[in-house]
């Protein structure tokens, strides 16, 4: 278990200490510790089955850890679940937009359920619409939107509340370079304006290298490496983050993920492309 310095704990927006998650005999997360500073963009990378999604599920209170502690925005995920959920925004990897509602209604719905005050809701929605360039398809049903439109809409719904910590699981999956730029520009703006901490998982090494202040690479349920992109390249004597990733994960071919995971992932990629 990594011992965290007191000063690091004080500034931490996300603090994970000795986290273990077991599903029966399977240990999905095997004693992970790390911290994310307030206002930081933190990237969690790793092959399929490394434990990234399980870690995010613990941090978003969807899953109880078997051992260890985790704090988000200063709240214990186990004892103060409601306070954690009031402080976060979360966009899962899977499509979370309701296809039977229009884009505008999805924004209204997530504004309501995330607790955006009624008097501020219309203004926040207008801001999110403008920021993510949603104006042209606001009145179209979710199921008729393209992959890029869906992702922008999902991120817009997560920004309505201006959360303290924003969890994004593969946020730019299936997006073209222009749409990716829009997403990251908006996230940068949010960070600058509201000091939001962004916790992101991605398979896009180049994107992680460019956008993340610090990165942790998970493998087999453990943190295999962590640091700034520069520190990681130096530590592994590698030219790129992709080389760091290969070195840190032992260069094995991916074996993680069940049939259901793979099927869902392929469907999702095809829907978003």
């Amino acid at each position: 278990m990594t011992q965290l310095a007191p000063v690091e704990e004080l500034r931490a927006s996300v603090l994970v200490d000795g986290l273990v998650v077991r599903f029966g005999e399977v240990q999905a997360v095997a004693g992970v510790s790390f911290s994310v500073e307030s206002g930081e963009v933190f990237g969690l990378l790793g092959p399929n089955g490394a434990g990234k999604t399980t870690t995010i599920r613990v941090l978003t209170t969807l899953l109880r850890p078997t051992e260890g502690q985790a704090f988000v925005a200063g709240h214990d995920v186990l004892r103060e679940g409601l306070a954690v959920r009031q402080s976060i925004g979360y966009v899962p990897q899977a499509i979370s937009i309701d296809g039977a509602l229009t884009a505008r209604e999805n924004l209204e719905f997530y504004g309501r359920v995330t607790g955006v005050p009624k008097r501020e809701r219309a203004e926040r929605i207008d801001q999110a619409v403008e920021a993510m360039a949603l104006g042209t398809f606001l009145d179209r049903l979710g199921r008729t939107l393209s992959g890029g439109m869906l992702r922008r809409l999902e991120i817009a719904t997560a920004l309505l509340k201006q959360p303290e910590v924003l969890f994004l699981d593969e946020p730019t999956l299936g997006l073209d370079p222009t749409a990716r730029r829009v997403v990251w520009d908006r996230l940068e703006l949010l960070r600058a304006e509201a000091g939001t901490t962004v916790f992101v998982t991605t398979h896009q090494m180049e994107e992680a290298e460019r956008q993340c202040d610090r990165i942790a690479i998970m493998d087999l349920g453990r943190i295999a490496a962590h640091g700034t992109p520069d520190q990681l390249r130096e530590q592994f004597a590698a030219a790129s983050l992709e080389d760091v990733f290969t070195a840190a994960t032992g260069g094995r071919l991916e074996e993680g993920g069940t049939f259901r995971d793979v099927r869902a992932s392929r469907k999702r990629t095809s829907r978003l492309a």
Binding site: R57, T60, T61, L62, L82, R85, Q86, I88, Y90, V91, P92, Q93, A94, I95, S96, I97, D98, Y110, V113, T114, G115, F167
Partner: peptide
């Protein structure tokens, strides 16, 4: 599709 996870992470 992911809506359930999203909903459960709201307050």
């Amino acid at each position: 599709v992911g809506q359930l996870q999203r909903l459960l992470a709201t307050p």
